[in-house]
């Protein structure tokens, strides 16, 4: 932090473009307004007054995948829903991230049967898994902060390769 401290009084901060872009991405992440099952109710709780996710720059839930960069898969994904979920993911512009919220989205949870995908990572790549059935709103907020840490360390050259 050496040079920033010295130049701070002058109103100038030096950083890398990479760091600045990543910082900007974490501070205005727009999740897609997309609830599947029980976890969606806890996701709504996390948005509401008591837990207030807007403290993390996330008050803006977008109903359209084309305007969002974070998909929170909140609930169990059935075989009928899987293709729809994939299409929604494909419609989101890069860069995009996925949080698998809850046991069902992470690993199938209590539903080990014919109807449910045993983890949404069979359908879309997942960045952060959240345990719980359903996870408490604090868990979801922790997942979001964990995702921020991941985004903060992303490299441009990795994105170019992908």
């Amino acid at each position: 932090m050496g040079v920033e401290q010295k130049l701070g009084d002058m109103g100038i901060v030096t950083t890398t473009l990479e760091q600045m872009v990543n910082w900007a991405r974490t501070r205005a992440m727009w999740p897609m307004l997309f609830g599947l099952a029980c976890c969606a109710i806890e996701m709504m709780s996390a948005q509401a007054a008591n837990y207030d996710m807007s403290r993390f720059g996330m008050e803006l839930m977008r109903a359209s995948p084309r305007q969002s960069d974070l998909m929170i898969v909140a609930g169990r994904v059935s075989k009928k829903m899987g293709p729809v979920l994939r299409r929604l993911y494909d419609q989101m512009p890069e860069p995009k991230w996925v949080i698998a919220m809850g046991d069902c989205a992470s690993c199938g949870g209590v539903f080990n049967n014919y109807a449910i995908y045993q983890g949404v990572d069979e359908v879309v790549p997942v960045d952060v898994y959240v345990a719980g059935c359903p996870p408490r709103p604090e868990s979801l907020i922790h997942a979001v902060v964990t995702l921020y840490e991941k985004v903060q360390t992303e490299k441009f050259k990795d994105a170019a390769k992908a």
Binding site: L36, R76, S78, K80
Partner: peptide, 22 residues
């Protein structure tokens, strides 16, 4: 049917106490 979970079928594979979780 987009949220069909197979709960009824799953309950048949569990004892009466354990099926309650579903």
């Amino acid at each position: 049917g987009y949220l069909h979970t197979g709960i009824e079928k799953n309950m048949e594979a569990k004892t009466y106490q354990k099926a309650e979780v579903m």
